[in-house]
Every structure is written in C-alpha cells, then in structure tokens.
C-alpha cells in the first residue's frame, strides 16, 4: 500500500540578506496511516521548516522548495494554493509550539474552533459550534459548555494547547503535525498533553508527525524516529531500535545529554559547540566540527545513509565503521545502565 505521505528529496531554501540558507537538505521520509513519526534535533536543524514546507506555509516570497511532498499521491509542492487550502486544516492539520500566542486574542475560542469547521465543511454556524463544543469536551476542557465563549487570555497555557489540539483534530485530519507541542508548557502539563495526544491519536486514528528536541517525548510517543542535524537526516529507524542501538555520534550526544532524575550523574554529557550556520555549512559530514570521533574523511566527504546490518529500516549517515559504532554505542548505553545499576 502506498504511504499516506511521502516526502522525497525535499529541499527548502530561504533567501536572506546574508545569502541563501539551505534549511532543509534532501530530506526523505514516509508516514503511514496512524503512524507516529518523531523528528528530533536541535533548534534550527530544519525540523520545523520541513513541516511548514509540507503545509505550504513558508513565505513564498522568501523561500523555494524542490523535491516532492506526495500526499495520497498528490504533490503538494506543485498544488495550487486553493487545493492547499482545502488540505490544510482538513486533511493535514498542525499544532504549534506556543499556545500562548497561537490563538487570536480578539476572538472567542468557540469562534476560532468553529471557523476551522466552517472553512472546510458546508455546515451551519450552529452545527460548527456544536462540533466545537464536542471537541472541547474531547480534549477535556472542564465545563466546556461554559468556556466555549471565553477568550484565549482566560485560559492557562495547558488549556490553550488543548484548544489548539481540538482545533487541529476538529475536521478528523489524516495527519497532524505537532511542532514541539509541549515545549512551552511546564513539566506536569507536558505529560498531560502528551497523554491526551496519544489517546486522541488512538481514537481519531490520525497519523502524527511529532517534532521535538526532547528524546523523552519521542520515546513516549513515536513509532519511528528521524534524527535531523543541520538540515539533513543523520539517523532514522524504529524508536526501539534507535534507543537500543543508536548509531550516529550526534544521536549519542542527544541521548547523553538527556537529564535523568533516576540516575545520579555528576555532569550531563553535552555536545560541544553550536549547530553550524546553515548559510555556510561545513563541508563533508556537517557534524564533524563537533564530533569527538571525526576522522579525515569526515571533513571531505558527506557520509551516505547506510542501513544497519540486520535492521534494514534503521539507517544512519556516518563514516565510522559498523564495529566502532557498535562498540561506542554499547559503551555509552553501558555507562547509562552502569550508573543505574550502581545506584
């Protein structure tokens, strides 16, 4: 069966005063019906832009995209803006990072939810409102019938994110893109929102693309993971496989820098340096300036994406040989498990 969404060799450039920024560089992946795909990476690695490109929400005057974004076989990059509008919000919906600013302050949330219905369905205002109320109840807003006419400023951050989720799901979309949906929330609220998303994903059967910089969020929610670094995918695979057998030094860095309450570590491992500028990315492997394992070849040649022996779904792009990767990964994970055992 053809995948629901297939992104092929997607490249997105932005024209800035300083030059052209390659924000997404030959990114390919697929999303199947009901699948949860996590995209992980640091700020500015291109994960959000990837999704905005899928939605056609980049400013057309400043950006250019090539490749293919096939949604049910239809290339969204070449679709008319009218067709894109039909898809946006109805078939592919999006949840944004900051619920405090993502809702219009001058309209009641009921109106904003109903607008999403009215834009796509030929229903009356009354029906749209009823649907809005239904969704507010589905995302567990207490006393939704009374709160439907309230304005965004009368809701807390967590509640607003629930409203955003309700808005995204209101038309039963096939795909929901969640762009760091929990980043702006405090930790307890984060857990609630993730749980809610998981529940709704099960009930509605939508596929979710979960963008995050938090491996913990991915571990909890995603079936598969893409690790992005500097506009490219450096590692991909099933979530289990990535957590059991991370292959790329960048993924190791991400895992090593996860703070853990259950393990006593003196210091978090950090990835030295800053992500490279996308204006002038380093030659060869883009991670080499920060990579403790960098070899001469890493400076010169871009590593190809290679499948892990025995796990064809799991790929990574690194020049290290398989044995070294296995050894280092084991050592890293071993270190984590040992401290755990020692405790």
């Amino acid at each position: 069966m053809a995948p629901l969404l297939e992104v092929r060799d997607l490249r997105t450039q932005f024209h800035t005063d300083d030059g052209t920024v390659q924000a997404v560089d030959s990114v390919s992946f697929t999303v199947d019906k009901g699948q949860v795909l996590g995209i992980v990476g640091e700020s500015g690695c291109g994960k959000s832009v990837t999704c905005l490109t899928i939605m056609g929400l980049n400013d057309p005057r400043l950006s250019m995209s090539s490749g293919e974004v096939l949604y049910k076989g239809e290339n969204l990059l070449t679709a008319s803006s009218r067709r894109l509008r039909e898809i946006r919000g109805a078939e592919i919906a999006m949840i944004f990072q900051d619920p405090m600013t993502s809702l219009n302050p001058v309209h009641s949330i009921g109106r904003q939810l109903a607008e999403a219905v009215l834009l796509h369905k030929d229903s009356s205002k009354k029906e749209a409102r009823a649907r809005a109320l239904e969704m507010l109840e589905a995302v567990k807003i207490p006393r939704a019938d009374r709160r439907i006419d309230d304005y965004p400023h009368q809701f807390s951050g967590g509640m607003r994110q629930r409203v955003m989720i309700a808005m995204a799901l209101i038309n039963n979309p096939d795909i929901v893109i969640a762009d760091e949906p929990t980043t702006a929330l405090d930790v307890t609220t984060q857990a609630q929102i993730l749980l809610l998303l998981k529940e709704l994903q099960r009930d509605f059967g939508s596929a979710i693309i979960m963008i995050t910089h938090d491996l913990g969020v991915v571990a909890e929610t995603a079936d598969d993971v893409l690790v992005m670094y500097s506009a490219r995918i450096v590692e991909r695979g099933a979530t289990d496989s990535i957590f059991k057998q991370p292959r790329h030094p960048y993924t190791w860095g991400l895992m090593g820098s996860l703070p853990r309450l259950d393990v006593n570590v003196d210091r978090l491992v950090q990835i030295p340096g800053q992500p490279p500028s996308l204006l002038r990315p380093p030659p060869g492997c883009r991670f080499h300036p920060r990579c403790p394992y960098a070899m001469t070849v890493c400076h010169e040649k871009e590593p190809p994406s290679v499948a892990v022996p025995g796990d064809p779904e799991h790929e990574d792009a690194c020049h290290l040989d398989a044995a070294a990767k296995q050894r280092e990964a084991r050592q890293l994970l071993g270190a984590i498990y040992e401290t755990e055992a020692a405790r």
Binding site: R88, L103, N104, E115, M164
Partner: peptide, 11 residues
C-alpha cells in the same frame, strides 16, 4: 503566531 494558525486552518 495566530496568523500562521489561521493559515494552517486553511483560511
């Protein structure tokens, strides 16, 4: 952000 939200709704 809310303008982007509106576009994402398909407005």
């Amino acid at each position: 952000d809310y303008v982007r939200t509106a576009r994402a709704k398909g407005a």
